[in-house]
Amino acid sequence: MEKKLVTIKIARNENSHGSKTNYQSYQIPLQEGMSVLDALDYIYENLDSTISYYSHTACKIGICSNCTVSVNGKVSLACQTKVDTDLVVEPVKNLKVVKDLVYLRKGESE
């Protein structure tokens, strides 16, 4: 049986100086029990290794909160949010974006 495909639309912001956000869409095969973090990993490993999302450290058990992103407009932990349909993934609003989905923590400066 063919695997179901889902579209993950990701906010790409290469320029931190306030340029308008571009979105890029990726089609990935849906896997049972896959998290948004797994989906981002899939894209990074197989489709586009230039995407940035905070993942050089990650507890994957929902405690460090460093993978927090906005999924379909809702603030979510990427590692604990299941993928079962098409998604839009963006950085959390009102925080300074470093690149794509990576932003500075509250109170931190570049």
Partner: peptide, 14 residues
């Protein structure tokens, strides 16, 4: 690395 234009959160460099 596929992208050497910027080292900002460059996952491949890490």
């Amino acid at each position: 690395l596929q992208d050497v234009s910027s080292l900002k959160y460059n996952k491949e460099l890490i």
